[in-house]
Simulated scan of single mutants.
Amino acid sequence: MKKTTKYLLGLGALVIAATVLVAADHIDAPSSAGTTADIADFYAFEPSEGSDNTVFVVDLQSNVLPELAYGTFDEDVLTEINIDLDGDLVEDQVIQAIARDGRMYFFGPIAPSQTGLSSEVNTDAALGDVEISGATAIVETTSDGVSLFAGPRQDPFFFDFFQFNGVISPETESAPGGFLPPEEAADTFDGANTLSIVVEIPNSMLGVPTATNALGLSVYKTWVTTNRKQ
Rank of each mutant, 00 (worst) to 15 (best):
L217S: 09
T115L: 01
I83M: 05
P170Y: 03
V167C: 07
N203Q: 15
A33D: 04
F158V: 14
L9E: 04
A18W: 00
I16D: 08
V198P: 09
A18Q: 05
I39H: 00
E67V: 03
Y105Q: 11
I110G: 04
T115V: 05
P202R: 08
D52Q: 09
T225F: 02
F107V: 02
G128Y: 01
P156H: 01
S51I: 03
S32C: 04
F179G: 05
F45N: 10
T19M: 14
K2P: 15
R153W: 07
T172P: 06
A175N: 01
Y43F: 06
V146H: 06
V55G: 03
Y43I: 04
R153T: 09
V22I: 13
K6C: 04
I201Y: 03
E173Q: 13
A175P: 01
I110R: 13
G71H: 01
Y7D: 09
T142R: 13
T188V: 07
F164C: 03
L217F: 03
V57A: 05
E171R: 13
G34I: 08
S113L: 14
G166K: 00
A175L: 00
S133N: 11
T226F: 04
P47V: 05
L117Q: 12
V77F: 02
D88F: 00
S147A: 15
D76Y: 06
S119V: 07
G87H: 03
N203P: 09
Q61W: 07
Y105R: 15
A214D: 08
E49T: 15
G145H: 12
S31A: 15
G191R: 07
P66V: 01
A137I: 08
I138E: 05
F42M: 06
Y220D: 00
D76W: 03
N63V: 02
G71C: 02
N165S: 04
L8I: 14
F56S: 08
I81H: 09
D187Q: 10
P170H: 05
Q93G: 07
I81K: 02
V219I: 13
D84P: 05
D160Y: 09
V15H: 01
A186L: 10
V64C: 10
F162A: 10
T141K: 13
I197D: 02
V57I: 15
P30M: 00
I83F: 02
A192N: 09
D129N: 10
A126M: 06
L78A: 07
S143I: 01
F157Y: 12
V198R: 12
D155Y: 05
A29L: 14
V146N: 10
V224C: 06
V139S: 08
I168A: 03
G34S: 11
I81A: 00
A33G: 00
V15I: 14
N122W: 02
V55C: 11
L14M: 14
Y220C: 06
V15F: 00
D187T: 03
S48A: 14
G71A: 14
I98N: 00
S218C: 00
A44E: 03
V20Y: 06
F149T: 01
S143W: 00
T4M: 13
S31R: 13
L65G: 01
S196Q: 14
L78V: 03
T210P: 08
N193T: 08
E91H: 04
D92W: 06
K2S: 05
S31M: 12
A17I: 13
